[in-house]
């Protein structure tokens, strides 16, 4: 057990836990961030995508100890921002959401992409989402959703 301090969605949090515990479990169980989903627990599906210091990572592959002093953003944080809202609205309007289990992770991946590249091509979007699996959509409408967000959010990214 160890006390770990980090920034979660712009607020400082302290948790006393085994530093080897998966960040995914700490977020979901200790901190109630159930927007972070577990699809595989082995780093393959991206359902547990979060931003760690602005970089896209799989929370199931990160031990809690690693985030000491760093900044974590989950879907709960992103959805409160203009960028997050733009992405969510664009996904909803293009039909990018089906069962929705992959979607919070997809939105995180899209945010990470748009931070790097505000005007991505279809190919660049496909590459950026390639670590996030979706079994429902075949990806086409998710790609459209990301394009729509980029167009609507010209001022944001």
């Amino acid at each position: 057990m160890k006390e770990i301090t980090f920034t979660l969605n712009d607020e400082t949090v302290r948790v006393t836990e085994d530093p080897l515990k998966r960040l995914l479990d700490v977020l979901r169980e200790d901190l109630g961030m159930t927007g972070v989903k577990e699809g595989c627990g082995e780093g393959e599906c991206g359902a547990c995508s979060i931003l760690l210091d602005g970089k896209l990572v799989n929370a199931c592959m990160v031990p809690l100890g690693v985030v000491e002093g760093r900044e974590v953003v989950t879907p709960e944080g992103l959805r409160e921002t203009e960028k997050g809202k733009t992405l969510i609205e664009a996904f909803a309007d293009t039909g990018a959401v089906q069962c929705g289990f992959c979607t919070p992770g997809m939105v995180m991946a899209a945010e990470a992409l748009l931070e790097e590249n505000a005007d991505p091509s279809e190919e660049e979007i496909r590459q950026a989402l390639s670590g996030n699996l979706c079994r429902c959509t075949g990806y086409d409408l998710i790609i459209k959703g990301v394009r729509a967000a980029a167009e609507r959010g010209k001022e944001l990214w």
């Binding site: 972070v36 992405l87 996904f91 929705g100």
Partner: peptide
């Protein structure tokens, strides 16, 4: 004519609750 799905925003924002949530 397409309409916005009733469940889209809740799901995309991570508010929708699945069994583990």
């Amino acid at each position: 004519k397409a309409v916005r799905r009733v469940d889209a925003v809740d799901k995309a924002s991570g508010r929708a609750r699945y069994i583990a949530d």
